[in-house]
Design a protein around this nucleic acid. Structure first.
Length: 293
DNA sequence: ATGGTTGCGCTGCAA
């Protein structure tokens, strides 16, 4: 996959990665930061409380120029934003989000980084259709939409959305029929989010490619490329207009001790001058692309 | 083979 611009030569590189325990992923995360040099990193499933996060990573990240907004609860869930282009107006949690089992789970953190409102989210899995957890997922997504709608126009939602937007985003639609991540209500909830003006910038760049971001650890699924695309970057129109590259870093899923998710990386050009106006979007090659319901 | 793996944390549950 092409790298596009680096974060060091103008523009801004924003990434998201469900690391499945930041403690276990340290030997992969730190070299990856140096390899890809993202300006902003959204993490999910940190599985670490905020004090433990600071103890584990604070010095290492500060040495690399990153400020940190961590929102964790230990054991499960946990999200964070790392930024070396500013980290302002941090909001932990999600206004109006439902609790799970009486707990406000650590699934969202937002901050303004380099002039863009960045949301790092870990959407509930849903477990089984029509289960309590599934209803929790749908209600949580509704709260996310309200939070994005209430925020600035320059925004991007990144994270483990736990929804495959279309049948092309799972390795075998038949095998997933009736399971969470592909059901109509979940896709409708994602469509409602997109209807706020957000765009799935990876799919727009790669309209017909086989692209996955998650592969089960079991049974050699990654080796066979049997995965799902459930980690998304959803950019508001003015942010999407600045996207120069958007891709999945499959290399980070290889080798020893990987997460079961790969990072998604978005490279943005500098904000255009008002006199110049927005960058023209790519040619409408995607006009023939099937739309999502 | 109703399988397989990883993380958390110590017993099975979540993903």
């Amino acid at each position: 996959m092409p790298g596009g611009g680096t974060g060091d030569t103008g523009g801004m590189r924003i990434a998201t990665w469900n690391v499945n325990s930041v403690r276990q992923r340290m030997p992969r995360l730190l070299p990856w930061l140096e390899q890809r040099r993202p300006d902003v990193v959204c993490l999910q499933e940190t599985k670490l409380g905020d004090d433990a996060f600071a103890d584990l990573l604070g010095e290492e990240l500060a040495a690399r120029g990153y400020a940190v907004a961590a929102h964790g609860q230990g054991q499960w869930n946990g999200v964070a934003i790392l930024s070396r282009v500013g980290l302002d107006d941090v909001v932990t949690g999600l206004d109006g989000a439902p609790d799970w089992d009486g707990v406000a789970e650590a699934r969202a953190v937002a901050a303004t980084c380099g002039g863009v409102r960045v949301h790092s989210v870990y959407v509930p899995n849903g477990r089984e259709p029509d289960s309590a957890h599934y209803r929790y997922k749908l209600a949580w997504l509704e709260a996310l939409g309200a939070a994005v709608a209430a925020g600035p126009a320059d925004a991007i939602v990144l994270g483990d959305i736990n929804i495959a937007p279309a049948d092309e985003d799972v390795y075998d639609p038949g095998a997933f029929a009736g399971q969470t991540h592909v059901t109509a209500p979940e896709r409708a909830a994602l469509a409602a989010l997109l209807s706020l003006g957000l765009r799935d910038v990876v799919r727009e760049r790669w309209p017909t490619e086989r692209i996955f971001t998650y592969w089960d650890y079991r049974a050699g699924m990654f080796h066979q490329d049997l995965g799902m695309r459930i980690d998304l970057a959803l950019a508001s129109t003015p942010v999407a207009a600045r996207v120069a590259a958007a891709w999945v870093d499959r290399q980070a899923r290889k080798g020893s001790g990987p997460s079961d998710h790969a990072p998604v990386i978005v490279d943005m050009d500098d904000a255009p001058d008002g006199e110049i106006g927005p960058v023209v979007p790519p040619p409408s090659a995607r006009s023939g692309r099937p739309r999502r319901a």
